[in-house]
């Protein structure tokens, strides 16, 4: 059986719960940072082809701002927090009170503010995940990039691509309650555990049938 065929609905539910808990904590952090009510959407766990992963984030060529961090420890993997450049600018303006921020590399303050925001959000996601699973997980220093979705997310699939042509995407989005209808999605989390991380993740949560 291939890597993905071994997954049952129960496994997918466990992964959904992981996305749920992580993003709920991140939403609380974001809410405090921006002094604004932030909602979290019901997380989605999908098993999809690589090209479809890109579609979930808006298409390979869509320009996004992304904070990437590598998770090290007992269940290594890759995590991305993805925003449209406009939403990233709005987040930073709200956070710092500075108007007219840009992410084209000139504006170091904007870059470092968003990096910090990504750091806090992914950090709270990961802390919640670590508490929930009792696994030791350490985030790397986050890395910020403004580029195409395909170029960014493919990087997170490299480890996985050695064993599979499909990815399990644990996706959660945060939305600003006041503008929910104007802007569909404010921020997206994508979690790609490394293939060898599924066993410790499932085991820690009492689902042991996955080998």
């Amino acid at each position: 059986m291939t890597f993905s065929q071994r997954l049952t609905d129960m496994h997918l539910d466990v992964l959904k719960e992981i996305g749920n808990i992580g993003a709920a904590h991140a939403a609380t952090s974001l809410s405090k940072l921006l002094d604004k009510k932030i909602d979290m959407r019901v997380p989605a766990v999908r098993l999809v082809e690589f090209d479809e992963v890109m579609e979930l984030a808006g298409g390979t060529e869509k320009e996004v701002v992304s904070v990437f961090l590598r998770i090290e420890g007992e269940a290594p993997g890759n995590m991305f927090f993805i925003l449209s450049p406009e939403q990233g600018e709005a987040f930073v303006e709200r956070m710092t009170g500075i108007k007219g921020v840009r992410f084209d590399g000139e504006d170091e303050l904007a870059v470092s503010a968003l990096q910090e925001l990504g750091n806090i959000l992914s950090g709270s996601y990961l802390t919640a995940l670590s508490d929930f699973t009792k696994l030791d997980l350490y985030p790397s220093v986050p890395s910020l990039s403004l580029d195409m979705v395909g170029a960014i997310l493919t990087f997170g699939l490299i480890e996985l691509s050695q064993v599979s042509d499909q990815a399990i995407v644990i996706e959660t989005s945060l939305t600003d309650v006041d503008h929910a209808e104007a802007e569909d999605i404010e921020g997206h989390f994508f979690l790609f555990p490394d293939p060898q991380s599924y066993y410790p993740l499932f085991k820690s949560l009492g689902v042991s049938s996955y080998e």
């Binding site: 690589f50 090209d51 890109m54 060529e61 580029d147 395909g150 170029a151 493919t154 990087f155």
Partner: peptide, 23 residues
């Protein structure tokens, strides 16, 4: 051409792939 994909083309058609990062 998608990710981890390969295709052929003859004139006058064109061929493209998008979002190449480390690929």
């Amino acid at each position: 051409v998608g990710i981890a994909d390969l295709k052929f083309v003859s004139a006058p058609d064109r061929i493209r792939t998008s979002g190449l990062g480390s690929c």
